[in-house]
């Protein structure tokens, strides 16, 4: 596929995912299931930007690994801190 077409489709996907995310925000936001959906949408959007806009696949492998760990680490942290918020609060109790 032509690079311009790929960029256009990536942008369209990002817009649709953002509108979908806003739809989640206007409904019931509670629960682990919603956190998982939000994290998956976040990861997908980050992957689209990093692949098609940032062209991360052409970067040095170490740079790619570092950026991808940030991209996937954040959605995972969203899920973990939603599921184990009490544990995190207990572990960090001394900081507060």
């Amino acid at each position: 596929m032509d690079t311009r077409r790929k960029l256009d489709l990536a942008w369209l996907m990002l817009v649709l995912l953002s509108m979908g995310g806003a739809g989640i925000g206007s409904g019931d936001r509670s629960g682990l299931t919603v956190a998982v959906i939000v994290a998956l949408v976040m990861a997908l959007k980050l992957r689209l930007v990093s692949t098609y806009f940032l062209e991360l696949d052409e970067a040095h492998p170490r740079i790619r690994a570092a950026v991808l760990s940030f991209c996937y680490g954040m959605p995972i942290l969203v899920i973990l801190t939603t599921a184990f918020g009490d544990t995190l609060a207990r572990l960090t109790g001394a900081l507060i």
């Binding site: 953002s18 995310g21 806003a22 989640i24 919603v34 976040m42 959007k45 930007v49 954040m74 969203v78």
Partner: peptide, 12 residues
């Protein structure tokens, strides 16, 4: 921003 947006505006 794609990380900030859902954390504050959707999930809280």
């Amino acid at each position: 921003w794609l990380m900030i947006f859902p954390m504050f505006y959707i999930l809280g």
